[in-house]
């Protein structure tokens, strides 16, 4: 690969920022014959120096971009995939110089770790897991959780990476009797893990013992919800769910995310907040990301919307640029930026 460098893009027009708190700071162009699928950020170490890097993924390649001066980036490594397409990047907190990716067609068939050999700086791939994988999430303390189907049951597996990204430990959690579709860490309770299931239940595990602590039915109106984040406060669990099946004509507006409160002792829950689009905007949740108290979603309309979960309202709208719909959105793990991507490999970095 030749080195590729990005241009500094022009500042966005004010009209793009309605109601506005996003400022365009950088643009990466990753030309590829295949469809662009994901973006992420991570720390990468070279010669004892850790740098905040951007990872871009298209169906047949994953690239690592290192920062140059003044918001420019250069592509330094690319891992190629010829057999199974890339579906998503799996961000694993506390892991440095190692990228995890999920490969598959409609469902995840493999999870791989991407790294560079210290001897010759060449790109390497390690197969971490294969099978029919329903959900995967990177957890703090260099852990990765996945749920997969076998012929007779479901496996919930935790992989723990060593500090150098090498030698992995394996542990299993007790599976619930229905398919787990998504996981969320519980902020403020490091050993708790939460999941949402196909039949609309919330399940809770103890990560240390592997015990399944509780299965809780939430109200029918949360159907097909996916958990993104959970917070433990005052003996209650506050869970942020996305609502891909929300009715756009609900009297409250178009709910994209929802905050529910669950009492883990009684398994009772109530809806606390709906995060809707501003009046006049339509679209349903396609995909999104939640970090701290901020949520971002790509909508079926091709627009990106962000919410402050504490204030309860939409804070920014990012309509499609150059007549191209947005396809994916991520909050940066290395600073407070929003990364937004289009199918053709364009990734825009916004200061939030």
């Amino acid at each position: 690969d030749t080195l590729e460098q990005t241009e500094i893009a022009d500042p966005p027009a004010l009209s793009n920022l309605s109601p506005g708190s996003l400022q365009l700071v950088s643009k990466l162009k990753n030309p590829s014959g295949s469809c662009s699928v994901d973006v992420s950020t991570m720390w990468w170490e070279t010669a004892g120096c850790k740098e905040p890097c951007i990872i871009t993924a298209c169906e047949d390649a994953v690239s690592l971009w290192k920062p140059l001066d003044t918001w420019q980036w250069e592509k330094v490594y690319t891992w190629h995939f010829t057999e199974i397409p890339v579906l998503q990047i799996i961000s694993v907190p506390d892991v440095c110089s190692l990228v995890c990716v999920a490969l598959g067609n409609l469902e995840i068939r493999e999870i791989r770790a991407l790294l560079c050999s210290t001897d010759d700086e060449s790109e390497k791939q390690l197969l971490l897991k294969s099978g029919h994988i329903n959900a995967v999430l990177g957890l703090t303390q260099r852990r990765l959780v996945s749920s997969s189907r076998t012929l007779f049951d479901q496996q919930i597996e935790i992989l723990t990476f060593a500090e150098d990204g090498g030698n992995k430990e394996k542990q299993f959690l007790m599976p619930p009797d229905e398919t787990v579709l998504a996981f969320a860490e519980v902020h403020g309770m490091q050993e708790a893990l939460l999941g949402t299931t196909l039949m609309n239940n919330i399940v809770l595990w103890n990560l240390k013992t592997g015990q399944l602590l509780k299965k809780m039915q939430v109200d029918d109106s949360y159907q097909a919800s996916i958990c993104h984040k959970a917070y433990s406060e005052m003996g209650l669990l506050f869970v942020v769910l996305s609502r891909p099946c929300a009715n756009e004509r609900e009297w409250l507006g178009s709910p994209v995310f929802q905050l529910i409160v669950v009492n883990p002792k009684t398994a009772l829950s109530v809806g606390m907040m709906l995060y809707c689009l501003p009046h006049g905007q339509t679209g349903r949740f396609l995909e999104g990301d939640v970090k701290d108290n901020f949520a971002a979603a790509v909508l079926t309309s091709g627009t990106i919307a962000t919410w402050d979960l504490l204030l309860g309202h939409c804070t920014a709208l990012l309509p499609p640029i150059s007549e191209q719909n947005w396809c994916f959105v991520k909050w940066s793990d290395t600073d407070f930026h929003l990364l937004a991507g289009q199918k053709d490999g364009s990734v825009f970095v916004y200061r939030y």
């Binding site: 050993e191 005052m234 209650l236 002792k265």
Partner: peptide, 23 residues
């Protein structure tokens, strides 16, 4: 909604559920 709708709350719910759940 009110907190009363959720039943009695325990600050030690994680430890309590861990001791009640099957090993």
């Amino acid at each position: 909604c009110s907190k009363a709708d959720l039943g009695p709350v325990s600050l030690n719910w994680f430890e309590e559920l861990t001791s009640e759940a099957p090993p």
